[in-house]
Design a protein around this nucleic acid. Sequence first.
RNA 1: GUGGCCGUAGCUCAGCCUGGUAGAGCCCCUGUUUGUGGUACAGGUGGUCGCGGGUUCAAAUCCCGUCGGUCACCCCA
Length: 426
Amino acid sequence: MSKSRYQAPKGTRDIMVPESNRISSVLKVFEDTLNSGGYGQIISPLFEEIGVFQRIGGSSEVVTKEMFDFYDKDPKSPQHLALRPELTASICRAFAQHRPVTPWKVWYQGPQFRYEKPQAGRYRQFLQVGAELLGTPDPHADIEIIAIASNFFRKIGLSGIKLLLNSLGDANSRKSYNKALVEYFASNQEDLSEQSQETMLKNPLRVLDSKRQEDQGVIEGAPLITDFLNSDSVNHFHIVQDGLSLLGIDYELTPRLVRGLDYYTKTTFEFVAPNLDSAQNAVGGGGRYDGLVEALGGPPTEGIGFAIGIERTLMACEAENILDSSVQSLEVFIVDTTGGKEALVLSEELRQIGIRVDRSFDQRSMKAQMKAADRSGAELAIIIGTDELNENQVTLRDLRGEGTQTVLDRQSLSKKLPKILEETRK
RNA sequence: GUGGCCGUAGCUCAGCCUGGUAGAGCCCCUGUUUGUGGUACAGGUGGUCGCGGGUUCAAAUCCCGUCGGUCACCCCA
């Protein structure tokens, strides 16, 4: 395509009609699910001081390379800002700033930005929904968060989503595990890929995440976090597992599940869509981040939450063939061959009483208008030609069935139309 | 950031290997139908072949660059 000089920036796109409808309906389901759990919506800024995001971890590429950042125009002390690459950090910043009463339960929805090379299910601007529960160490919070996320998937009709579960332990458990991992990887360094050797220095946990063939042998023999959890962490993890079983939520223990952001502690989880054959089959994920609020200058506060990628969720829906395009279709299409004034007045009259109606412009021929009426998906065509205009009448034509026509008094149309529409649906 | 493939009408694509100044289907518009859609038939609109440069008498076709898309790695939702 050549003629248009401008196009949507790399990794962004215009989401149009069938898909935009699907997105709104998915968002609606999410909103309902979260409201039913006592979570309130938070709408935070699309950008923050860059430091807010840098707190989430220096070994994460999301923070080191993938941020869209810029300076504002203040000539004296321009602020270094960044488009949000994720929302948990913003939420924790908001918590630290406002100190709400705990437990603080919020949900959010909106675009995030990551400067990455686009790929299937990966965009530079993408939509996430999520929820955070701040201010309690109670493992029941972990369970609730996971349950709510799986509720969401169930409600939109996805049945193949798998829940992967792990515990990274608290800071202490993690420290000793880290040590063991470093030792192990160091002694097997020559069998690791070059990349992984680098990763090892920055964040040994992340090496477990490598998909490189050459790393797999080493990874398989690596020590497991499970063996390094202290009693508090083990306890916490057991309660979470018991609770999930109690609620009938299936999960798969994945001791090597490591999430991308550095701030996670204890419970971590990921929702994957196995029937997505793309490399991006993680549709959502989350975990506990007990030190994050404090790192952002707030009081020591526990937190747990999840985020779900909408684009990937929709891809999963497509793979499961449950794409729902339940858009409210038009009820009436007005065909006016007398110049368009009637269509103008009548469409306004009907819209005011809540009927979904469209019309043609440009004074097109009756045939063309009928064609447009047909394609509009409307149930009824209201035809106004010179005959009707003179007689003060309108002709109703059924567009779904045989095309039966009835003539009606123009004056009584608004009153009778709702009932007539009801009849035609039978 | 690294690598593979791709970029021709609004959409899906053929043509490119073996250079000779553009094609199909769908969509859209008009007509067959002197007020009436959904089927059928006939006709029509629409493209500086992503952009820039090079080779050549001649480039959609070959070469280089660039932008965009896509897939994998990396990373992540």
